[in-house]
Design a protein around this nucleic acid. Structure first.
Lengths: 138, 138
DNA sequence: GCTGGCGTTGACGTTGGGGGGAAGGTTTAG
DNA sequence: CTAAACCTTCCCCCCAACGTCAACGCCAGC
């Protein structure tokens, strides 16, 4: 299989594949004419990379999974190094979520304060008419 | 006030201030010798920028707040444009938190599955000794 | 033998928020 | 007088994960 076909089958681009090879993440054999030659297993590795990328893993973080598969293990996460990456990522996610929640609370506070301030300003500049006034006009 | 003093008073660097000026976010008057000259109000603007940055706002997102202050309003968020940025940011935060939570659930699922698979493999390769065996050895 | 569609390498651009440092002018304290 | 501490502009560097040419090679169909 050549680079274009692999890219299409994995839903990515040839540029990405060349980049992965440059990183040593997904090296390719070469055909006689210099073209990269991939096998079915490379598709497997590539799918693993893509899945982890969808989870927000950096490419370097996918390396243990890929190497685990290449070492012949049944799954990319059959190796301790991969499990360690999972653990680190979970901690990272927890921290990130907590931080975002904190920011959300603070921004919401600012927003509400600003809206109240605006309403009070509007009220002082142009006091709202009372119910009686509306009733009399009708 | 010159750039170094303003930077120190706001807890940032001269480099950042020149960058803000380059963006047109915090323009400075010039003294006769070409040095940037800032006033107390610039410190106010800068503090607003820094606060929003701490919330994770991009510099462009702080622009409405800064312009609102420069327009003479009491707070950076006294203007509708600023409130709109708050709203957008809150929505963005909610979406981001939801996405991270979803990823967390999925990664946790993968992790647990991988750990179970590893344990089962270990169990089949080396079955755990039963209670009786331990008792007899003691 | 020519066109079109693959492939190759290499270099540069992107986005954000600056950092680092050169080469030179200014100010200020001792 | 001089050294330190400022200031100025200018330009390259960083991070990730590629995108986008440019200039060229390889191969199939007509």
């Amino acid at each position: 299989m050549r680079i274009g076909e692999l890219a299409e089958r994995a839903g990515t681009t040839t540029r990405a594949l060349r980049y992965y090879e440059e990183l040593g993440l997904l090296p390719a054999r070469r055909a006689g004419n210099g073209y990269r030659a991939y096998g079915e297993e490379d598709l497997r590795l590539l799918r693993e990379i893509r899945m982890l990328q969808d989870f927000g893993f950096g490419l370097e973080e996918t390396r243990p999974f890929v190497e685990c598969l290449r070492a012949g293990h049944p799954e990319g996460d059959s190796c301790p190094a991969s499990l360690e990456v999972y653990r680190r990522k979970l901690a990272e996610l927890d921290e990130c979520i907590a931080r975002l929640r904190d920011v959300r609370v603070r921004v919401a506070g600012q927003f509400e304060r600003a809206v109240r301030a605006r309403d009070e300003l509007a009220a002082s500049e142009q006091p709202p008419e009372c119910e009686l006034a509306r009733e009399q006009r009708e």
